[in-house]
Amino acid sequence: MGASSSTESNLMASLQRNLSKIVVAPSFAASLFFVYGFIIWTAWMAFSKSRMMPVYDWAGLRQYERLWQMERWHVAIENLLIFGGLFIVICLFLGCLLAVLLDQRIRAEGVLRTVFLYPMALSFIVTGTVWKWILNPGLGLEKMMHDLGWATFKFDWLVNSDFAIYTVVIAAVWQASGFIMAMFLAALRGVDQDIIRAAYMDGASLPRIYFGIIIPSIRPVFLSAIVVLAHLAVKSFDLVIALTGGGPGYSSDLPATFMYTMAFQRNQLGISAASAMMMLATVMAIIVPYLYSELRGGKKNG
């Protein structure tokens, strides 16, 4: 083969190399525009005087000041803390408990796993709809308890502005705890059998083996689970809309519903953008350190 064909194949080779870039380019461009571009855009809106329509006159931190002066935003933040905290703790506890229970050579484990996990396949809107029905004070759980003979049973959290946010916790835990169970179960199955055998040979009891050896060795999964749950909590939107609609009043608002309401119902685009930026900051504060440590630790496959 002569020189010309080697230049030709050189060209081919460089095309081959560039094919890879050409293939990724559209997605990368989309990401640059729709993710990074939009973040900047929203950030800019938050610094503008936008109300009903987006305008781009500089207003400095005016929108953030207005945001933090709003009673409603404080309620949303407070609710997020309550909801997030309870949601994370209960899911972790339930998930871990169920995983350990399922780890005992259970007959029909597959069926049980399916049962614990199926809520995760449902839309939060469906979950919200059914829990709204179950928890409604008129015909739901309360009436069921009355009919069962517990006449003084009272359960009106759904319409009680002090407790509405806790109903969101109930439904959210129902939906997500099975998933946490699956994460833990996978981790338990990944624990080195020889360590367990060794501990057993040393005479450790089963609870000792779990609390002393297995659970500490799956600590990274706890971290992952917390990050997943925290992330879910910050973004929670659909469930609140379907279950309480943010009500009564705005007593069960979360930042996500607050942002939506400001954007699409109250025509407060600037405040809405500012609240979205606050949410982004919160998520980043959780995710970035986590990803950093994950990517650093798992450099080999990442």
Binding site: M1, S6, T7, S9, M12, A13
Partner: peptide, 11 residues
């Protein structure tokens, strides 16, 4: 006698 530095593997 062929220099293959820039020849594609398949060639």
């Amino acid at each position: 006698d062929r220099v293959i530095n820039n020849v594609h593997p398949k060639d």
